[in-house]
Structures are given as structure tokens and as C-alpha cells.
Simulated scan of single mutants.
Amino acid sequence: MITCVVDYTIDAAKIEEFERFARRWVELVNRHGGTHHGYYLPAEGASDKALALFSFPSLAAYESYRGLFGNDPDFVAADRIRDESGCVLRYERTFMRPLLAEDAPG
């Protein structure tokens, strides 16, 4: 399994637009073979940071999903929310390998 962690810097004045963007991506990841673990939005402290975590069974499965970017109309529409609203100022994507409870020696 591979987990993608996306660290966002968002426009805090456009949190509603970011939430609309996030809801679409949760749906798209889940529909196309991944498991979305959610978006984590500002609550206290820094108001311009948000995170998303989602997993795919393998890097190959993730790459198949990524192949839909710019091609699939639903993906284009989801990106349009971000682009037209300006809710995302920048983001950084990191791939991680989770260590889960069932992986621990017992």
C-alpha cells in the first residue's frame, strides 16, 4: 500500500470553496480504486494549512488513477473548483508507506 499525503496552503477566506473541492476529490479517489482517509482542515492555530491522506494498493494503481487527470471530465471539473476559486495557494505531495497495527510484531 502507498499513501499520498498532500500538504496544502489554502486561502483561509475561501474555506467553503476548499471544502467543496475536497469533497469532490474524496469521491473521485474512492471511485477510482483508492481509499480516501479524509481532509484535515484548520481548527485552531494556523488557519492556512490543510492535509489530505489517501491510499492506493500500489504505486501502479495510483499511476492508473493519475492517468485520468486532465482527461476525465469529473477530474477536470474538480480541478476547476480549485483553479477558479483560488482556494489553494500551493500544495506538496509526499508518498509514504503506512505502518499499521496489523504490521506490528505481536
Results as ranks from 00 to 15, higher is better:
1 M>W: 09
2 I>E: 08
2 I>Y: 01
4 C>N: 13
5 V>E: 00
5 V>G: 13
9 T>A: 10
10 I>V: 01
11 D>C: 06
12 A>E: 14
14 K>E: 07
18 F>P: 00
18 F>Q: 03
19 E>Y: 01
20 R>P: 00
22 A>S: 09
24 R>L: 02
26 V>A: 09
28 L>F: 00
29 V>G: 00
30 N>H: 03
32 H>L: 08
32 H>S: 07
33 G>Y: 02
36 H>R: 03
36 H>M: 10
37 H>P: 05
41 L>C: 09
43 A>I: 14
44 E>F: 15
44 E>Y: 15
46 A>F: 11
47 S>D: 14
49 K>P: 01
52 A>F: 10
53 L>F: 06
55 S>V: 08
56 F>H: 00
56 F>L: 11
56 F>N: 00
58 S>Q: 06
60 A>D: 07
61 A>S: 10
63 E>R: 07
68 L>W: 10
68 L>I: 06
68 L>K: 08
71 N>K: 15
72 D>C: 04
76 V>A: 03
78 A>Q: 04
78 A>E: 01
79 D>K: 12
80 R>P: 06
83 D>N: 10
87 C>F: 02
87 C>S: 00
88 V>G: 00
89 L>F: 11
90 R>W: 05
91 Y>V: 14
95 F>Y: 14
96 M>G: 13
96 M>N: 12
99 L>P: 00
99 L>F: 13
101 A>V: 14
104 A>V: 13
105 P>T: 12
105 P>V: 09
105 P>Q: 13
106 G>A: 15
